[in-house]
């Protein structure tokens, strides 16, 4: 068990290193010169050269990579080209809304999607199943920002139940905090719920075809108990897996949702940095999001041991 955890954890290191190399390569090998951006349009050649030197851009590429990885290993993500603020500090200032949104969405998804999938799997092809599947196809197909605007249009503009946009942090009161997160959470969870409900459904249906389900029926077990005790428990591994993988689309969704609802989170920060071509900030955020994704999936790997006794070395 312990050695399994260590093994999984160690296995994430090369992935993270590979992420770092890909990000580095992307930013350094594509056309576009950070120094030119920093210097502004009317800088002279000499000025540009000086800036380049101060940023270490005149060094060979492998040296740059080494320096950069070293800084990274020490937790140094560099400073913003525009404001000069350390990237880490900027992230700290903007993480609140993003974290709140993500956690609420994951909770909502788990509470809604798993029962949906199980109910659908109970009778494949039945009315409930078709309803759930329809909802799931809709969730996949309607882009988060379209759902967002439809929600704003209906619930905020027409009905006036929620504020149109904006964010209010928890310390300014719980109600305004939630009031402003309801619509974003709904918009964001659409695709995630679709994903998890679909996987729950198909894995439960899969397991229902296994031999041991027949054994359970031969024991005289109730169909509900067959479904929950035998099928769902065995379907747990693919379900948690998809919850982990779904974090990728969740991150995409966060970026979009924060733009639609004007939430001052990390997603907005990415878009702002991209529009301003603030390289260190872009770099830092991509790394942050990627590492989060890798770590969440590490957690999922470790969760496997809880659900499946066969995975235990």
């Amino acid at each position: 068990m312990f050695s399994y955890v260590i093994k999984r954890a160690v296995a994430t290191l090369p992935v993270m290193a590979m992420v770092a190399v890909v990000v580095f390569a992307m930013l350094r090998l594509t056309p576009g010169d950070p120094a030119a951006i920093l210097a502004g349009d009317d800088a002279s050649g000499a000025q540009l050269e000086a800036i380049r030197r101060s940023m270490g851009l005149d060094q060979p590429i492998m040296v740059q990579l080494y320096v950069w990885m070293k800084q990274l290993a020490q937790g140094d993500l560099g400073v913003s080209l525009l404001s000069g603020t350390p990237v880490l500090e900027m992230i700290g200032g903007r993480i609140g809304p993003t974290l709140s949104l993500a956690v609420l969405t994951i909770l909502l998804t788990i509470v809604v999607a798993i029962p949906m999938g199980v109910v659908a799997a109970r009778n494949p092809g039945g009315l409930l199943d078709r309803t759930v599947m329809t909802f799931s196809v809709l969730g996949f197909s309607i882009p988060t920002f379209v759902i967002g605007y439809l929600l704003i249009y209906a619930m905020a503009l027409k009905l006036g139940w929620f504020p149109v946009q904006g964010y209010s942090s928890v310390d300014k009161g719980l109600w305004p905090f939630f009031q402003r997160l309801v619509l974003p959470t709904l918009a964001l969870s659409g695709i995630y719920i679709a994903l998890v409900a679909r996987m729950t459904r198909s894995s439960v249906i899969d397991v229902m075809g296994e031999d041991f389900i027949r054994t359970a029926r031969a024991k005289g077990a109730k169909e509900t108990s067959v479904l929950l005790r035998h099928a769902l428990r065995n379907a747990a591994v693919p379900i948690v897996t998809v919850i982990g993988i779904g974090v990728a689309s969740l991150i995409t969704g966060v970026v979009v949702t924060e733009s639609v609802f004007n939430l001052p989170g990390l997603g907005r920060l990415v878009v702002e940095a991209v529009l301003a071509r603030d390289y260190p900030v872009i770099q830092g955020l991509i790394l942050l999001f990627s590492f989060t994704y890798v770590l969440i999936n590490l957690a999922v790997d470790i969760l496997y041991t809880v659900f499946d006794p066969r995975i235990r070395y």
Binding site: E210, D211, F212, R214, T215, A216, R217, A218, K219, G220, A221, K222, H230, R233, N234, A236, F307, D308, P309, R310
Partner: peptide
Amino acid sequence: RALRATRMAMIFQEPMTALNPV
């Protein structure tokens, strides 16, 4: 359901998959 296991019971071909693995 009430009859199964009490009055009639069954054993299967594949012992490897007939039991719940978890």
